[in-house]
Amino acid sequence: MRIAMVTASTGVGTLRGNRRFDLETGIEASGMGRADVWWRHLPGGGRELVPLLGARLCALGPVGYEALGHRELAALTYHGESLPGHPRGENNLASGSVIAVRTRSGQLAKMQVQTYGHDLRIRWQGCPPPPRFKGLKVVVGSAPPWLVSRYVVDCAYESPDGSMHPCGRGEFGADGGVVEDRISDAWGGFPATARVVVAVDFQPGTGLQGVVEHFAPEVGAAGVSMLYEPNQEIRRVKLVFGLTPPAGAQDYLLLRWVYRSGASAGGGSQKTLTGPDLQGNVAQHEIAFPPDASTAAAVDLTVDGVYQAAELVQFKQRVSLPASALAFRFRKQGSGPRYRLEAF
């Protein structure tokens, strides 16, 4: 399928006798394969402008050339017959005459004969329709502030002529935001899909590397409407500690974790839960990581600290993923003051 005229051809030139002309590109055609009209000289002195390859013509006479646009040209009736241009007879191509053309690929153009003769001095201009637009809206949902520091959203689309066009960008904090823009058919039609790239930066304390997600939402009748919900993209493991007996003022828990994939260790981080975190009956902390940023199949979790004013027996465990939550309780270690953690 032929792509529509993206940049309408316009210019002034000479249509030589017995030569063919391509109004879509504004060049004399060497053959009939890329031509819309033929300034044909007939035996006996006759001349005619012949439409080629399905092109159609409409003779308008000496009308105002400049005022003709796509709307005016689209309202005309076009024919596949030749227009006479006889120097001593019927002539639709006299100097000043305007001809509307529906080109071989269905585009609209206008042509004016500035000087009539063996060769025609002409000017022409393609008249594409005004561009249409469809809306694009990308909504980025919120995430916990301890997890996400920044979102960057970039939107673009590839038009049928192969060129790329930006159509919206936004930078947001953990609360998320909205990117709104438009997609145009000015380069040969609407694309089938848009390209949406969402980059996520995580807080340093999570130990997570930033991730980049690529999406190709469909461009429908109403345009593009897309929701990026980080809670659907990010895996979490919640750690819940039952504080029985209650933690003391100087107690703390040091949590450390490392992501693993087979025998390989990936990123990790740590978090210290202190006085304000250890008040009440339960303390909680979430470990989170995006599924596409890591092939992690497990998390190596280590917990040290002080509990009930005594050093806690170190806890170490490999947690297979996915796992939504782990619960822990404190047990007395022997007859001394030390406690140990056990998962249940």
Results as ranks from 00 to 15, higher is better:
residue 122 I to E: 01
residue 46 G to F: 00
residue 270 Q to M: 10
residue 10 T to Q: 09
residue 112 Q to V: 00
residue 330 F to L: 05
residue 62 P to E: 00
residue 157 Y to K: 11
residue 103 T to C: 02
residue 118 H to A: 15
residue 96 G to W: 03
residue 289 F to W: 14
residue 140 V to S: 07
residue 66 E to G: 15
residue 322 P to S: 07
residue 227 L to E: 06
residue 114 Q to D: 11
residue 217 P to E: 05
residue 78 Y to W: 04
residue 47 R to A: 07
residue 280 G to S: 07
residue 242 G to Y: 00
residue 317 Q to A: 13
residue 28 E to M: 13
residue 249 A to K: 00
residue 153 V to P: 12
residue 10 T to E: 02
residue 159 S to P: 08
residue 173 G to T: 08
residue 114 Q to E: 06
residue 304 D to T: 01
residue 326 L to A: 06
residue 14 T to K: 06
residue 50 V to S: 07
residue 240 V to Y: 01
residue 185 D to P: 02
residue 12 V to W: 10
residue 101 V to R: 03
residue 96 G to H: 01
residue 41 H to S: 13
residue 265 A to F: 08
residue 192 A to L: 13
residue 315 F to K: 09
residue 317 Q to G: 07
residue 142 S to I: 06
residue 341 L to C: 14
residue 73 L to T: 02
residue 313 V to P: 12
residue 256 R to Y: 09
residue 232 Q to S: 14
residue 161 D to T: 04
residue 313 V to E: 10
residue 208 L to N: 03
residue 57 L to H: 11
residue 212 V to E: 15
residue 47 R to P: 04
residue 267 G to K: 01
residue 81 E to D: 14
residue 28 E to L: 08
residue 141 G to A: 09
residue 126 G to S: 14
residue 9 S to Y: 05
residue 174 A to T: 00
residue 339 Y to T: 05
residue 167 C to P: 09
residue 104 R to D: 06
residue 51 P to H: 00
residue 188 G to M: 03
residue 182 R to F: 03
residue 185 D to W: 06
residue 304 D to Q: 12
residue 12 V to P: 13
